[in-house]
Amino acid sequence: MLRNGLEPWHLLVVAIMIILLFGSKKLPEAARGLGKSMRILKSEAKAMKEDGTAQSTAAQAAPEETTAAQPTAESNLVH
């Protein structure tokens, strides 16, 4: 019975229930709202990813500069 999970007729029943609940006039408006939300989510995720890579490259460059400026224990012993 549950071996195949979701069959095409299940999707048909769900689609009919959604049409009955929301009506045919509200569905295009809801689809537009969902599409707009998905676009905003994608752009925010892309911006966060770009910020993360910019911060990681800055973090990788910063320790190299600070370690070069600090004297090591061996240089203190030579003097």
Rank of each mutant, 00 (worst) to 15 (best):
M1P: 03
L2W: 05
L2H: 05
L2D: 04
L2N: 02
N4Q: 12
N4E: 07
G5W: 00
G5T: 00
G5L: 05
G5D: 07
L6H: 03
E7F: 07
W9A: 15
W9G: 15
H10V: 01
L12R: 15
V13W: 02
V13I: 13
V13R: 15
A15V: 02
A15T: 00
A15C: 08
I16W: 04
I16D: 09
M17D: 12
I18L: 13
I18S: 02
L20K: 04
L21P: 00
F22S: 04
G23L: 01
G23R: 00
G23Q: 00
G23E: 00
G23F: 01
S24C: 08
S24G: 10
K25F: 06
K25I: 03
K25P: 00
K26L: 08
K26N: 10
K26M: 09
K26R: 14
L27K: 08
P28R: 06
P28E: 01
E29P: 00
E29I: 07
E29T: 06
E29G: 09
A30V: 05
A30K: 10
A31V: 09
A31Q: 07
R32I: 14
R32E: 15
G35R: 08
G35S: 14
K36Y: 07
S37N: 13
S37F: 07
S37Q: 13
M38S: 14
R39G: 15
R39W: 06
I40T: 15
I40D: 15
L41Y: 14
L41V: 12
K42P: 00
S43T: 09
S43N: 11
K46C: 07
A47D: 04
M48V: 13
K49F: 04
K49Y: 11
E50G: 04
E50W: 01
D51A: 10
D51Q: 11
D51T: 01
G52S: 11
G52H: 06
T53W: 05
Q55F: 09
S56T: 09
A58F: 10
A58S: 12
A59Q: 09
A59S: 10
Q60V: 09
A61E: 11
A61Y: 01
A62N: 10
A62E: 03
A62P: 00
P63K: 07
E64I: 01
E64P: 00
E65T: 03
E65Y: 00
T67A: 04
T67L: 05
T67I: 10
A69R: 02
A69M: 03
A69H: 01
Q70V: 03
Q70E: 14
Q70L: 13
P71G: 07
T72Q: 10
A73Q: 10
E74Y: 11
S75T: 11
S75L: 14
N76E: 15
L77W: 14
L77D: 07
